[in-house]
Amino acid sequence: MRYFLSIVALLVIGILGWFWLSGGFDSLAVWAASWQRDFQNAIAGGLRRVRTGDIAAAVTVLGACFAYGVAHAAGPGHGKVLIGGYGFARRVPMLRLSLIALAASLGQAVTAVLLVYAGVLVLNLGREAMVDLTEAIIAPVSYAAIALIGLWLAWRGLRRLLQRAHDHDHQGEGNHCSSCGHAHGPSLDQIEQVGNLREIAALIAGIAMRPCTGALFVLIITWQMGIGGLGIAGAFAMAFGTALVTIFVGLVAGGLRGGMLASFSGSPQLARVAAGVELLAGTVVMFLAGGLLLRAL
C-alpha cells in the first residue's frame, strides 16, 4: 500500500508539473479573473437592490461574495503557495492545517475591514487610493514575508539534510540498532514535530496582511451606501470562500507528502528524504513568493 501511495504522489506531482509547463495555470488565472468580474457585477447589483429596500437581496449578495472568494482563490495567490508549501514541507495534522488556512483567510477579512475603516474614517481615502495602498505597500510586504518563510523552511531542510549520520550500518531486528542502541530508521512521528505557536502565527500573518481587493470593493461601496454591516459580512463570506480552496490545497499537499514518504517508513533514509522534501518545498515557496514580490515592485 505504501508503494502505491508513493507512485500516486509522484504521478500527481508530474501532472501538476505538466499543467504548469503547458500554461495551464495561466489559463486558470484568466478563467478565475473572468468569474471574479461576473461575481463582482452580481454583488454590485445585489447591493443596489438592498439599498432600495429589498432585504432578501442581502442573501444573494452574501452568496455572490462567497462565490467570489472561491473564484479569487482559484487563481494565483500567495495564500495557497504558503499553505500548500507548508503542508508539503512539514507533517502537520490535517485538522490543524485546515484551521491554519481558515484563520489566515479570516485574517485577510479582518485586515480588509481595519484598512478600509481606518482609511475612510481617519484618512478619508477612496477606493482607488485604498487599492493603490494595498498593491504598492501591503502586498510587497506580504510577499517578502512569505519569501522569508520559504527561505526558513529551505534552510531548516538543508540543515537537517547535512546533519551527520551514524558511521555504521543498522544491526539487529526492529527499529533500534543492537550495536549502538539508536533508532536508525525513525518513524514520521519521531522525526517530525508540528510547529510552535510563533511558527503558526508567522504563517497566518504572512497571508492575512494582504487583504483581498474584492473585499475592499465591497467594504467601501457598502460604507458609501450606509449598509456597512452587510459589507463586513460580505468580506467574511469571501474569506470563507477563499478558505475552502486554500484548505483543499493544503490537504492535497499534505497527502502528497505522506504518499512520497510512505515507502521510506522505518527506513534509515526517512529522515534524509523528509529533510529533502522540506528543502524542496521551502525553495518553491521562496521562489514563487519572490516572483510575486518582483512583479509587485
Score class of each variant (00 low, 15 high):
Leu47His: 05
Gly53Trp: 03
Leu95Gly: 10
Ala32Gln: 05
Gln40Glu: 13
Pro93Ser: 08
Arg96Cys: 01
Val50Gly: 01
Gly79Gln: 07
Ala58Glu: 12
Ala57Pro: 09
Gly46Tyr: 03
Gly53Val: 00
Leu28Ala: 09
Val70Asn: 02
Gly63Cys: 14
Leu62Pro: 00
Lys80Gly: 09
Pro93Lys: 00
Ala57Met: 04
Phe66His: 03
Leu47Ala: 00
Ile43Trp: 06
Arg90Phe: 13
Ser34Met: 08
Ser98Asn: 03
Phe39Lys: 11
Ile43Glu: 11
Ser34Leu: 08
Val92Tyr: 05
Trp31Glu: 11
Ile43Tyr: 08
Ala67Lys: 07
Ile83Asn: 00
Ile83Val: 15
Leu62Tyr: 02
Val81Cys: 04
Phe88Pro: 04
Ala33Pro: 02
Thr60Pro: 02
Val30Leu: 15
Ala44Trp: 01
Leu95Phe: 08
Ala58Ser: 15
Cys65Gly: 03
Arg48Pro: 03
Ile43His: 09
Val81His: 06
His72Ser: 14
Val70Arg: 04
Trp31Met: 10
Arg49Ser: 12
Asp54Glu: 15
Val81Ala: 12
Gly84Lys: 03
Ala67Tyr: 09
Val59Tyr: 05
Pro93Tyr: 01
Ser98Phe: 03
Gln36Trp: 04
Arg91Gln: 13
Cys65Glu: 01
Phe66Trp: 02
Gly85Glu: 07
His78Gln: 02
Gly77Phe: 00
Val30Gly: 04
Arg48Asn: 11
Cys65Pro: 09
Met94Glu: 14
Ala42Leu: 15
Ala71Arg: 02
His78Pro: 11
Thr52Trp: 07
Trp31Leu: 14
Ala33His: 06
Arg51Asn: 06
Val92Gln: 05
Gly69Cys: 10
Ala29Arg: 01
Asn41Tyr: 05
Gly69Phe: 00
Arg48Val: 01
